[in-house]
Design a protein around this nucleic acid. Structure first.
Lengths: 343, 343
DNA sequence: CATAAAAGTGAAAGCGGTCACAATTGACAA
DNA sequence: TTGTCAATTGTGACCGCTTTCACTTTTATG
């Protein structure tokens, strides 16, 4: 299918017997143009159904007014909230966004980066894939002075601005809450140990334990690769052990829900036998039975903040030096952890 | 923040003492170039860290290799699945996607259309907002011969290709299943009546009833605007009536879940007192208690199909005449409707 | 060997805009 | 009358790449 012909400034100019620059000025509402001329041109443009060509403008002014976004996956609620926040603020500030998903693959992430750079995006918002363990591609981006910032899945290796949530503190809140409920044998279900969030949330977990006088030697950490299969397996293994925990803090909600299902299958009462808390506050968490206590992460706000900060940097409203924004998480108390009221 | 300098073909050409056209040909792997020259150029480009400028190419060849996507909202699981499918297939075929969300607003949808057209996208994939009741903006797009297709939220008014699910049949499946379970007083909880899917699903609902000899006069239709507030209100009103239904088919899962919550609050047993079925198969549906019987819509596949078809049209692999693709839905039987086994 | 055909390369004209600079005009002061 | 200045509008180079056409050099062919 061929795109139909698009009207250009040249054609408007010819019809009106003026020059293209005059047309350009009229459509830009330049003050140095005679109002009458401007009016004639604008009217003609409208009647000819003229559509501005952003591509041509971008090439000329070397600014595309497009932001590139790379996320691990589009379908996760958290990331789609991020994107929603990014899109809304970008749009408000006159920018479009181009989106790629790495599908948690390092190679894909590098490829995405390449096409977005080729597309001359003015800046990038990146959330790293799970596989990403080396950062040369980001370093290269940095060396090339292409503005970008990272959000949620970040690395400390590259000195650019970052937007994250206070993972450690969030975990602390969850575990502290479980401790308040009287639990003392609290397990931490972690994703892959090299993940930034696995580490940070473990920090918060340990901190809360310590505050209640529980030494690190008594911590109980279970690691899964976050596939449903592995989640089930690890939970089963935990159940098979002699000394069961009385509470579980799972690194992310989907993991918590997989754990919940296995516990229920095994006749274990939640929260009476084992209390449970997650992290993220996915919509699902509110409707599972029992509803899941979790840590709420402001995904949309994160996207907004990230986009606004990047645009501020681009527009030089704000200096270039890297800043770290850490958004607050809050505890969402639901039934899966209410020992005191249900016991 | 200023973007760093980007290497151009001109610079490569100067360094090597060849012309830009030769560089262009080398990087395009043109066969009419001497292999040695080609090699020298490619190596130089690599060493200089050359990055192709897609913008310039687009302007020159009047093809941007970008697809525009407009969805009502990014955060709904169904639409993010669509987008994921679109993104993956576009990417595979050398296209990028530019995404806008209308936030269910007609004005926003029109504005989105404008910026995407200005950005010179090669084609568009559109899912209409709830507010969209007039179609001049689409007609204009059509008249301008800008290739586009619609998916999920479509209108019959514009003769372009469409990708939808068999809404009527899906609804039929759900209601038929409820009838099979022995229910006879089945209510249909509908969204705004002018929505395409509200109508289509009602058709299926009525068809199933009719097949069981239940006349349309005995149909029970409740309409909500799909806000949680209204959903609750309508459910309460239904409960207040004398002759309660023994089953409810809700137009979409979120509505079904709102209904479920109100029913549970009122001590009504699901499915014993009232059976329940939804539509969409959101991830949430699997984990609510009781798990929700629903109709599965292949969101990702829909995105793939839509993108592939549009690209086929663009690449003239397939004729331009509008086609309608109707994807199959399937019944996902879960606990919220199992009268026979639980009763 | 002459000559035609093929191979390899370059020059230049755009794609649709922007913008620095130049040119034109008329008003007004000197 | 002439110069100056502001207000308007035009000219043309350019953004980075593609592609036609022409040109030069090989190579093949009779």
């Amino acid at each position: 299918m061929k795109k139909g012909h698009q009207v250009t400034m040249k054609e408007i100019a010819k019809k009106l017997g003026v020059s293209v620059s005059t047309v350009s000025r009229a459509l830009k509402d330049s003050p140095e143009l005679h109002p009458d001329t401007k009016k004639r041109i604008v009217e003609m443009a409208t009647s000819m159904n003229y559509q501005y060509n952003l591509l041509a403008q971008s090439l000329r002014i070397s600014r595309s007014k497009v932001l590139g976004v790379i996320v691990p996956e589009l379908t996760s609620h958290f990331f789609s909230s991020n994107i929603s926040g990014i899109q809304d603020t970008a749009y408000k500030r006159g920018y479009n966004i181009m989106i790629c998903q790495s599908n948690e693959s390092f190679e894909q992430e590098k490829a995405n980066l390449k096409t977005l750079v080729s597309s001359q995006v003015d800046g990038l918002l990146i959330s790293l894939s799970r596989e990403t363990k080396s950062y040369e591609h980001l370093q290269e981006l940095y060396d090339r002075e292409i503005p970008f910032i990272m959000f949620d899945r970040v690395t400390e290796e590259i000195p650019v601005s970052k937007v994250t949530v206070d993972d450690a503190h969030g975990a602390y809140l969850a575990v502290n809450h479980l401790l308040q409920q009287g639990c003392r044998k609290i397990a931490y279900f972690s994703g892959p140990t090299d993940l930034y969030i696995s580490k940070k949330r473990k920090e918060g977990y340990l901190e809360a334990l310590q505050e209640f006088g529980i030494p690190e030697t008594e911590s109980r950490v279970y690691v899964t690769d976050l596939t449903e299969e592995m989640n089930r397996k690890v939970t089963m293994e935990m159940l098979a052990e002699g000394d069961r925990p009385d509470a579980i803090f799972a690194m992310i909600d989907p993991l918590a829900i997989d754990v919940m299902i296995v516990l229920k299958e095994n006749g274990i009462k939640i929260p009476q036998d084992i209390a449970l808390a997650g992290f993220t506050n996915n919509p699902t968490s509110a409707v599972v039975e029992p509803s899941l206590t979790t840590i709420s992460q402001p995904g949309y706000e994160m996207g907004q903040l990230a986009a606004n900060h990047l645009l501020d940097q681009l527009d030089e409203i704000v200096p270039d030096d890297p800043q770290s924004f850490i958004l607050l998480t809050t505890l969402v108390e639901r039934n899966s952890s209410q020992k005191s009221t249900t016991a």
